[in-house]
Amino acid sequence: MELNERALLVGVDLNNDDDFEKSMDELENLTEACGYEVAGRIGQNLKTVSNAYYIGAGKVEETAAMVKATEADVVIFDNELTPTQHRNLEKALGCRVLDRTQLILEIFAQRARTKEAMLQVEVARLQYMLPRLAGRGEFMDRQGGGGVGTVVRGGGEKKIVLDRRRIEQSIAALRRELKDIRKDRHAQRKRRSESGLPLVALVGYTNAGKSTVMNALVEFSQKPDTKKVFEKDMLFATLETSVRRIELPDNRAFLLSDTVGFVSKLPHELVKAFRSTLEEVK
């Protein structure tokens, strides 16, 4: 993805939701965090979303015109789209379409640095992909016929079945790796608990300043050799839990955890990516 790609943002205000503008502002921040340039925003008030396009037919035409006028490369929707809505929108708008879940997945993929974070993001991406295989060009195969012992059906349909099986096998393998990593993390957490030191966790919205607070306390600590955590003014700079021992001037100490930040409308596929945070604060 080129950094100068232009994105048009689209949202639906269902039943005059008081948080609609806040959600759209957050979508704009997420879009910029992913490296896109925001070309404009479109909103629509609806009582129910369209099964075919999510937005109404008239708004689809307005959005298509806006895509041309702003020279947008991609249209990003503030909610998760169904496979049917996604296909219909890309056909009607003539450009790439992303939903909020895909956008957050892109950000997580860019930010992931530890093995656990990278594995969890890949699991989330594959889980999101599974119900969207049918009709997607990258998974269709034009070959026809059937081999010995197979059901004769269209080549594209057979390819989807094979892709689904491969993805499910990949998810199972990734989960086994994650299980081993979490066993190690559980053992580390048990040792920290047995140390008798108080445990303190920094919890809050993404980019609220948790890592900044931790680094300030690390500087204040009587252990100047303690390594600081990664700190940057952007959404989801932190995708894993970091723990530091903070030494106080009166010779007392505590363990401080910097955790993954939260965001509204977090995709179901990524909830488990926050598992380490939840385990640290429970």
Rank of each mutant, 00 (worst) to 15 (best):
3 L>R: 08
5 E>T: 10
8 L>W: 10
9 L>C: 00
10 V>N: 06
11 G>A: 04
12 V>I: 14
12 V>K: 01
16 N>S: 12
17 D>Q: 00
18 D>S: 15
19 D>M: 09
20 F>Y: 15
24 M>S: 13
25 D>R: 15
27 L>K: 02
28 E>P: 00
31 T>W: 07
32 E>T: 13
37 E>W: 10
41 R>Q: 11
41 R>V: 09
42 I>S: 01
42 I>C: 10
45 N>C: 09
47 K>V: 13
50 S>P: 07
50 S>C: 12
50 S>I: 10
52 A>W: 01
52 A>H: 12
53 Y>A: 02
55 I>L: 12
56 G>V: 07
57 A>R: 13
59 K>P: 06
63 T>M: 06
71 E>L: 12
72 A>E: 06
74 V>E: 01
75 V>M: 06
78 D>P: 02
79 N>W: 05
80 E>T: 12
81 L>Q: 08
81 L>T: 04
81 L>W: 05
82 T>E: 04
84 T>K: 14
85 Q>N: 13
86 H>T: 00
91 K>E: 11
99 D>N: 14
100 R>S: 03
101 T>G: 01
101 T>F: 08
104 I>W: 07
104 I>S: 00
104 I>M: 08
105 L>I: 00
105 L>A: 04
108 F>Q: 05
128 Y>V: 03
130 L>G: 06
131 P>W: 09
131 P>Y: 04
132 R>A: 02
135 G>P: 08
135 G>E: 00
136 R>E: 10
143 Q>Y: 09
143 Q>V: 01
148 V>S: 10
149 G>C: 10
155 G>I: 00
156 G>A: 10
161 V>W: 12
161 V>M: 07
168 E>Y: 06
168 E>W: 04
170 S>N: 14
173 A>L: 09
178 L>T: 02
181 I>G: 04
182 R>I: 06
183 K>V: 11
185 R>E: 12
187 A>S: 11
188 Q>R: 15
188 Q>E: 14
189 R>Y: 04
190 K>Y: 01
191 R>L: 13
193 S>K: 15
196 G>M: 11
196 G>F: 04
196 G>Y: 02
199 L>W: 00
200 V>L: 08
202 L>N: 06
203 V>A: 11
205 Y>G: 10
206 T>W: 05
207 N>T: 05
209 G>P: 00
212 T>K: 09
213 V>Y: 01
217 L>A: 04
218 V>S: 02
219 E>W: 02
219 E>G: 10
220 F>T: 07
221 S>Q: 01
223 K>N: 13
223 K>P: 05
225 D>V: 03
228 K>N: 05
228 K>V: 05
242 S>I: 07
244 R>I: 11
244 R>T: 05
245 R>S: 04
246 I>C: 00
246 I>K: 05
247 E>A: 15
248 L>Q: 13
249 P>S: 03
250 D>P: 07
251 N>K: 15
251 N>Y: 07
255 L>E: 09
259 T>L: 02
261 G>F: 01
261 G>L: 05
267 P>N: 01
268 H>G: 11
274 F>W: 12
275 R>S: 12
279 E>I: 02
279 E>P: 03
280 E>D: 08
281 V>D: 10
281 V>M: 04
